[in-house]
Simulated scan of single mutants.
Amino acid sequence: METKILITGSSGFIGFHIAKSELEKGNYVIGVDNLNEYYDVKIKEDRLKILKKYKNFLFFKDDLNNNNFYKKLKKYFSDIDVVIHLAGQAGVRYSITNPETYITNNILAYVKLLEFFKFSKKLRVLLFASSSSVYGEKGEKKSSNSSVDKPISVYSASKISMELISNVYSKIYNINLIGLRFFTVYGPWGRPDMSYFKFLLMNKRKKPLEIYNYGKHQRSFTYIDDVILNLSKIINFYKKKKLKGVSSVFNLGNEKTIKLMDFIRTLEKVTNIKFKKKFVKKQLGDVEKTGANIKLEKNKFNLEFNHDLKEGLIKFYRWFKNY
């Protein structure tokens, strides 16, 4: 049976991939994206061109804070059974200098979305993007049921706020709200503001790579196809189960934590490029180490991660060269 899915941020990196995956399964996807200029709009428009080739895709160029958008969406209100909310303002460092945009585009936009769907009889589950940055400075290997009360950026504080607001709406309106804490997702059609993409762009411009925290960062690098596979498993879990009023948050990331310098060495091998490097100090708001503890999630959803770093970077570089 066809599922009707609303995907916010459908021209974003993860939004594009999950939209494409669901369209290929024959599901009907309504996408919404304001195509903002936080990073190069061209890549967002190019992702959108691909999605528009599918007959079962409907797109709104709109903003979740715009009341007129909900007037247009009302026509589909009683058909939508899954919402994947990926729209919002990304970027840890940007949140230090532009805090207000995180309140508006992460917290307020989410509340408006919840207000629209709170009385839906059809909605089975609303999934929303949280982040591994909620764990703060000492976040490595924390399970998703551990407390998060020490954010070190407005970005991570906005994601914690969304998680807390979900508890309220889930309790009052008896709806399933599931947060997903993503861990450093990379791959084709990725975000140009992410380090792995930036490194290749800097090299193309014959500039040295700026390596923050003198290369001491460690991350749970997670390949996009693994994210989409596991996201689909989580959606199916909540579609099949007759659950109501569930508010939960889960980790979604590769268990393996990789040192930034090992990541760069792998990238050099894959690209056959010796990068010029400029080591700089740790930036405000940066988390030194992330590590995805998915013990709980593996048991519940049977999560699986099939791409190692080298394989993922080969696929990314092949796309990068042809884009």
Results as ranks from 00 to 15, higher is better:
residue 1 M to E: 07
residue 1 M to C: 09
residue 9 G to A: 09
residue 13 F to C: 03
residue 14 I to T: 11
residue 15 G to Q: 03
residue 16 F to L: 07
residue 18 I to N: 07
residue 19 A to K: 01
residue 24 E to A: 15
residue 25 K to F: 00
residue 27 N to Y: 05
residue 27 N to P: 05
residue 30 I to Q: 10
residue 31 G to F: 08
residue 31 G to A: 13
residue 36 N to M: 01
residue 39 Y to H: 12
residue 39 Y to Q: 08
residue 39 Y to M: 02
residue 45 E to N: 05
residue 45 E to R: 05
residue 50 I to S: 06
residue 51 L to F: 03
residue 52 K to T: 05
residue 55 K to E: 14
residue 56 N to D: 10
residue 58 L to M: 04
residue 58 L to R: 09
residue 59 F to Q: 02
residue 60 F to L: 02
residue 60 F to K: 02
residue 63 D to H: 13
residue 65 N to V: 08
residue 66 N to A: 14
residue 66 N to L: 09
residue 67 N to D: 15
residue 68 N to D: 07
residue 69 F to D: 00
residue 80 I to Y: 08
residue 80 I to M: 09
residue 82 V to I: 15
residue 82 V to Y: 08
residue 84 I to N: 02
residue 88 G to A: 04
residue 91 G to F: 05
residue 91 G to A: 03
residue 92 V to D: 14
residue 97 T to P: 03
residue 97 T to N: 15
residue 98 N to I: 04
residue 103 I to M: 11
residue 103 I to P: 01
residue 105 N to W: 08
residue 106 N to A: 05
residue 107 I to G: 04
residue 122 K to I: 12
residue 122 K to E: 14
residue 123 L to V: 02
residue 128 F to R: 06
residue 128 F to Q: 04
residue 131 S to M: 12
residue 131 S to D: 09
residue 134 V to L: 05
residue 134 V to K: 13
residue 135 Y to D: 11
residue 137 E to L: 15
residue 138 K to C: 11
residue 138 K to I: 12
residue 144 S to F: 10
residue 144 S to I: 11
residue 145 N to F: 13
residue 150 K to Q: 12
residue 151 P to Y: 00
residue 151 P to L: 01
residue 152 I to H: 02
residue 155 Y to L: 06
residue 157 A to R: 11
residue 158 S to G: 08
residue 158 S to W: 09
residue 163 E to V: 01
residue 164 L to D: 14
residue 165 I to N: 04
residue 166 S to M: 12
residue 166 S to A: 15
residue 167 N to D: 11
residue 168 V to F: 13
residue 169 Y to D: 02
residue 171 K to D: 11
residue 174 N to S: 10
residue 176 N to M: 02
residue 177 L to W: 11
residue 177 L to A: 07
residue 178 I to K: 08
residue 180 L to E: 02
residue 182 F to D: 02
residue 185 V to Y: 08
residue 190 G to W: 05
residue 191 R to D: 15
residue 199 F to Q: 01
residue 202 M to V: 05
residue 202 M to H: 11
residue 204 K to R: 11
residue 205 R to I: 00
residue 206 K to W: 05
residue 207 K to H: 10
residue 212 Y to C: 10
residue 215 G to M: 10
residue 216 K to Q: 10
residue 219 R to H: 06
residue 225 D to G: 00
residue 227 V to L: 08
residue 229 L to K: 15
residue 230 N to H: 03
residue 230 N to S: 02
residue 233 K to M: 13
residue 234 I to H: 03
residue 238 Y to D: 01
residue 238 Y to A: 06
residue 238 Y to P: 01
residue 239 K to A: 00
residue 243 L to M: 13
residue 248 S to H: 02
residue 252 L to G: 04
residue 253 G to V: 03
residue 255 E to S: 10
residue 255 E to H: 01
residue 256 K to I: 01
residue 257 T to H: 05
residue 261 M to Y: 01
residue 262 D to Y: 08
residue 264 I to W: 04
residue 266 T to V: 09
residue 267 L to A: 07
residue 268 E to R: 13
residue 273 I to C: 13
residue 280 V to E: 14
residue 282 K to H: 09
residue 283 Q to P: 12
residue 284 L to Y: 15
residue 287 V to C: 05
residue 292 A to L: 12
residue 294 I to K: 06
residue 295 K to N: 11
residue 298 K to D: 00
residue 300 K to L: 15
residue 304 E to D: 04
residue 308 D to G: 12
residue 309 L to V: 06
residue 310 K to R: 15
residue 310 K to P: 13
residue 313 L to N: 02
residue 313 L to D: 04
residue 314 I to Y: 07
residue 316 F to T: 13
residue 317 Y to H: 06
residue 317 Y to W: 05
residue 319 W to N: 06
residue 320 F to K: 00
residue 323 Y to E: 13
